[in-house]
């Protein structure tokens, strides 16, 4: 894998993350991401067939908790911190389209 990423791809990822960036920023971030990807490409060049994929750096598994109810937050206190609330619910601008 090469370390290249196009301006269009960076603009697409920015829009997915709901980031609005200027043209200058797009240039800067594209250059920076190319460097990051080049570094990742060095790993890809290694022969890692015998190495287990690692999802996490910690040697942990099965960290679980008991199924017991813990008191929840006070609703009024939570809703008081939201920009808008109605009927005990968070009020947000109209959602466009279906949930994914």
């Amino acid at each position: 894998m090469s370390g290249e990423i196009s301006r269009d791809e960076v603009a697409h990822v920015a829009s997915l993350a709901r980031l609005s960036i200027t043209d200058d920023e797009l240039t800067t971030f594209t250059d920076q991401l190319c460097v990051v990807l080049e570094t990742a490409a060095q790993l890809n060049a290694l022969d890692l067939d015998d190495v287990e994929p690692m999802a996490q750096p910690y040697p942990l598994a099965n960290v679980l908790r008991v199924d017991e109810i813990v008191p929840s937050l006070d609703r009024d206190e939570v809703l008081a911190q939201a920009p808008a609330a109605e009927d005990g619910r968070f009020r947000v601008p109209p959602a466009l389209g279906e949930a994914p």
Partner: peptide, 17 residues
Amino acid sequence: HLGGGGRIHDATATLVD
């Protein structure tokens, strides 16, 4: 979804639980 007869496209606001 509030307003627009409960239809998503015409809603004026969305309430979330």
